[in-house]
């Protein structure tokens, strides 16, 4: 369970670039919910995920994960509760280290890192099995440097790393946006499989309305730093893109104009 209570964040306060990025965001996500987050460019989707991850401190409000108030914890301290996959495939892995070493780093998230071996034989066997489930052949080249992998392979690996130790929340920040459509679909399906297998509480930011409707059991839409739509249950299941656009216009009082759709990429 995660709860955001009236989160506010302003970037570059007092300068000409001042931007109110989160304008009082409140949200409660129950255990096991898979929430997709949509909205135009600059709506605050990624900012909300970064606020949860602790990339920077928020200006106001509280973030509570399973009754633990993490608002004052720095990024690395709250990492133990979170699994994260980023938009840029380069961000989530250490390129100069092996596939197995990257997994071993992730397996120790939130634990004290002492002078025991960084990776054990037993772990390697476990990783071999988990990598085989990705069906990318990575289990045959476990000691290969991650820098040699393609973007899609790196995202799949990052996903595995994020969920190796069951996170309280899985944060997916447009994690397929940098991939070609076919690879993006594979990674999304892997995401779906891992999320339902481990019954993970998940937030997935996406630009793609079709994906946002297809995946997950709840959808929220953001605009100008606020959550303007929140649809769950049966209504979410039967949602169409046209309905979603119509609802946006209704709630925001603006038209989801064509060029806005074009600017925020793909498939509207």
């Amino acid at each position: 369970m995660i709860e955001l209570k009236n989160i506010r964040k302003t970037f570059n306060p007092g300068t000409i670039n001042e931007k109110l990025a989160l304008d009082g965001v409140s949200l409660r996500i129950e255990e096991g919910e898979f929430v997709t987050v949509i909205g135009g460019n600059g709506a605050g989707k990624s900012t909300m995920l970064n606020a949860i991850a602790g990339t920077w401190p928020v200006n106001e409000g509280a973030i509570v994960i399973d009754d633990i108030n993490v608002t004052g914890l720095s990024e690395y301290r709250r990492a133990k509760y979170l699994g994260r996959v980023f938009q840029d495939p380069m961000t989530g892995t250490a390129a100069s280290m092996g596939i197995d070493e990257n997994l071993a780093l992730a397996a120790r998230r939130g634990k004290r890192r002492g002078l025991r071996w960084g990776i054990t034989k037993k772990e390697r066997e476990e990783y071999r099995e988990k990598l085989a489930e990705l069906s990318l052949g990575l289990e045959e080249r476990m000691s290969a440097k991650v820098g040699l992998l393609s973007g899609g392979q790196r995202q799949a690996l990052t996903l595995l790393m994020a969920t190796l130790r069951k996170p309280k929340i899985l944060l997916l920040d447009e994690h397929t946006a940098a991939l070609d459509p076919k690879t993006a679909k594979t990674v999304l399906e892997t995401t779906q499989r891992i999320v339902s297998e481990h019954h993970l509480t998940t937030m997935m930011v996406t630009h793609n309305m079709r994906d946002a409707i297809h995946y997950g059991n709840r959808i929220i839409m953001m605009n100008e730093g606020k959550i303007i739509l929140n649809i769950a249950g049966e209504e979410k299941k039967n949602l169409t893109i046209e309905q979603l656009l119509h609802k946006f216009e209704e709630v925001s009082g603006e038209e989801f104009t064509n060029d806005q759709a074009i600017l925020s990429k793909k498939d509207f």
């Binding site: 690395y76 301290r77 990492a79 994260r84 250490a94 280290m97 780093l105």
Partner: peptide
């Protein structure tokens, strides 16, 4: 040392600080 948990964390820090923080490395 660079094969231990701590040494691996140092290597990760040198390679990708953002990833290291996300994996809970100080």
């Amino acid at each position: 040392y660079f094969g231990t948990e701590q040494g691996s964390a140092i290597r990760a820090t040198g390679t990708n600080p953002a990833m290291s923080r996300a994996q809970g490395i100080n």
